Amino acid sequence: MTQKPSNKPKARIGTRIRGQMAAAYEARGETAGDLYLHFSSKMKMDVVLSGRLSYLHFLLVERDPGVDQVDYAPSGRLATLMGKEPAELVDAEIKTTAGEVVWRRLIDKEADDTEAVRDLREAIGKGALRGVNRLEVLTFKQLVAEDTWTRNTHRALAWIAAARSHPLSQPKQDILALLKTGRAVSFQDCLELGAGQAQALYGAAVLQMALNGAVQSDLGVAPLTARTRFTARREGH
């Protein structure tokens, strides 16, 4: 069914953010974990993340070209499938570019061999869970293993979020054309493809391409600066 476009003006971003955070705090109840509201480049929407581990996992997923889709808060939806208690063991659900459905559990420390987790592993792939391929358990240590990439992803997503209301197709085409020369180009080179305020769109475009694997960069080994290097994606990478 086709929905008619509304004539009502859209709420300003600040108003929408306040409303989303108020709803998230209300849904959180009395738990004490911090809430983060951030724009997901992968999902092209704002997502609410509960706690430090969820935010670190968000930064990992947003730079993983092997992730096609993600649900950062699936427990409410999964509760109808298998009950509230086992659903609360699943902190995120991802669908890979290979078509696999993977559940992620996020924990502070290494030990997680509880009976509930063992039962969940045993149930995956069977009955109502036959569409799920596996459960992955990620620890805090694993989530911060790529510290430079993590910090740069945080900064890159801020650029991308600021450009969320603007099309980036032309900046991406211009950057790819520049990369076809075969040489490495700097972040500053990419910015200078635009004029005035449009430079920010070129910055967002190249960073989004670096996160989704469309171009290669040194963001995993060096802080994001004007000298950050980007190269064309090589076959097999």
Rank of each mutant, 00 (worst) to 15 (best):
G213F: 09
G66E: 07
F140N: 14
H166N: 01
F39Q: 05
E136L: 11
R18W: 10
F39K: 07
E122D: 08
R121C: 13
R234M: 08
S40G: 09
R229M: 15
A27I: 07
G76C: 03
Q3S: 10
H154D: 12
T150W: 00
R63V: 10
G14L: 13
T181K: 12
R118Y: 07
H166R: 06
P171D: 00
L179E: 00
Q20Y: 02
M209Q: 04
V70F: 14
Y55W: 14
S6E: 03
A226P: 05
A32Y: 08
A184P: 01
R16S: 08
E192W: 02
M1T: 08
T80I: 06
P223F: 00
R104I: 14
V47N: 04
T114Y: 04
Y72A: 04
L207Y: 00
T15L: 11
G33N: 13
L219F: 02
L168N: 00
L201A: 01
Y202F: 15
A195T: 15
A184F: 01
E88N: 12
L211C: 06
D119Q: 14
D34R: 09
P86Q: 04
D64W: 13
R233L: 12
M82R: 07
L201W: 00
S165Y: 06
L193G: 02
E30F: 09
H154F: 12
D71Y: 03
D218L: 13
A222K: 13
R63C: 08
V90C: 06
Q3G: 07
A161Y: 02
Q3K: 08
T181E: 12
G19W: 01
R227S: 09
K172P: 00
D112H: 12
E30I: 13
N7L: 11
G236F: 11
M209L: 13
G99C: 12
N212C: 15
G194N: 03
H154M: 09
G76Q: 06
R77W: 05
L176F: 01
D71I: 04
G182D: 00
R18N: 13
A161Q: 10
T228Y: 01
L78C: 01
V132N: 08
R28N: 09
S217E: 02
